[in-house]
Design a protein around this nucleic acid. Structure first.
Lengths: 146, 146
DNA sequence: TTACGTGCAAAGTCTTTGCAACCAT
DNA sequence: ATGGTTGCAAAGACTTTGCACGTAA
């Protein structure tokens, strides 16, 4: 509760200070993103339906785009289709997606750090770790298939 | 010429040996993928239009899916929208996409190797390097923006 | 000859946009 | 009051699918 209020207050001000308004829809979307980890716009919409009368899907899209641009949430592409959103504060890890079974694992920032450093030094490139999704095959599928 | 024929012969047999037919459309699509690097289905369709009367867009999709499943081509997601295809033989590098200006750079397999090894040892995960796309900011945008 | 493959058109999925009504400030 | 926001519906981008005709083997 205490934590929740503290969090609310901070993104409230983040919005207001940039001239955006704080609306119930935006609050609900942010709460859904926090509750569901790696949620698609559809899943976020479904989650929000349960609490309130519902937030229109186009508002979900517009809100996610806004929160993403403000750096409050981040998204990555885990599968072929829809992107998944998560809180920016719980970012910092990359995703490992198995192309055989679809299982999703996480790799810590520390695991990625050497690569990020190499790309910085070799290409001057600043890696967005929380957006990073790595495709391949998981341990189980490697053992099974061949 | 010699090389072209050699390449043709090999994928011809790859198709036939698995019970698929060799058609002019499949040949054109594969040639387009070879000629255009990182091409979307639309771009491949456009390229094919110039040579022949045209290959229907749905055939492009079906052919790319087939060639991908056979391991003759590979695809990655460079931007928000359509995937891009390239020859499997010219794979082995990852892509660095600047989220500010959209510029695409390439990172060699050697640059990625330490990460791939770390993921193998730590997670038992086999990285698909040619599918790997890393988002972030390029040198120029980092210098300009801040 | 005979399945497999193609073209065409329609439908499907995911996302964006125009606009009038609404509400946070 | 007043300009950012929302809901709704229509449009848009990208991809898939059903079916009859065409063609590689």
């Amino acid at each position: 509760m205490e934590q929740g209020q503290t969090r609310n207050r901070s993104w409230d001000q983040e919005l207001r200070s940039r001239g955006y308004r704080v609306t119930p829809q935006r609050q609900l979307v942010l709460e859904a993103v926090a509750a569901l980890h790696h949620a698609t716009p559809e899943e976020i919409a479904a989650n929000v339906q349960r609490t309130a009368k519902g937030v229109n899907i186009s508002t979900i899209y517009r809100t996610l785009e806004l929160l993403d641009s403000l750096g409050l949430v981040a998204h990555t592409h885990l599968n072929h289709g829809a992107p998944t959103y998560h809180l920016a504060t719980e970012a910092g890890h990359a995703h490992l997606v198995c192309q055989d079974c679809g299982k999703i694992d996480e790799a810590s920032r520390e695991t990625i750090a050497p690569l990020a450093q190499a790309l910085d030094e070799g290409h001057g490139f600043e890696t967005n770790v929380s957006h990073l999704t790595i495709f391949g095959r998981c341990r189980e599928c490697r053992a099974t298939d061949a």
